[in-house]
């Protein structure tokens, strides 16, 4: 299988790799996929409470090159967007940007899921008065 230049670039130079404190009230964490399926993405966002703008995004991914590229791209795209704008990102946008072949579309779906999961986690924290443990793990 040959990869597009953009996938190779994200693979070689992944953007926004890292982790943020998942217990922080401003941080939303999405952990999607499963090791058995060969893909796990962790995407984290740090949101400005006043503006709802995503100020920071980090990811770590276990998966093929396309999965790494999809999540790397997702962090780039959500940064600077409001939460609602980020929710509008669709997996097919990622497919198009990275020229993913049909067999790799699930990587983009996972990236969209990761964005939604991270935002969902952040929203849940905002609803409850005090920070709760995140959805990551016990």
């Amino acid at each position: 299988m040959s990869y597009s230049d953009k996938v190779i670039d994200h693979y070689n130079n992944p953007r926004n790799v890292g982790s943020m404190d998942k217990s922080s009230a401003d941080v939303g964490t999405g952990l999607v996929g499963a090791p058995e399926c060969g893909d796990v993405m962790k995407l984290q966002i740090k949101v400005n409470r006043d503006t709802n703008v995503i100020e920071e995004a980090k990811f770590k991914t276990f998966g093929c090159g396309s999965a790494i590229a999809s999540s790397s791209l997702a962090t780039e795209w959500v940064k600077g967007k409001t939460v609602d704008e980020a929710l509008a990102i669709k997996n097919m946008d990622i497919v198009k940007e990275l020229s993913l072949p049909p067999v790799k579309i699930h990587c983009s779906v996972l990236a969209e899921d990761a964005i939604r999961a991270a935002i969902g986690d952040w929203k849940k924290k905002q609803e409850s008065a005090k920070p709760v443990t995140s959805a990551v793990a016990q």
Binding site: N12, N13, P14, R15, N16, V17, G18, S19, M20, D21, K22, S23, S24, E56
Partner: peptide, 14 residues
Amino acid sequence: MSTDVKIPQELPVT
């Protein structure tokens, strides 16, 4: 755990 773990933004590729 500390906030903003120190992992290089871009891992070096040689």
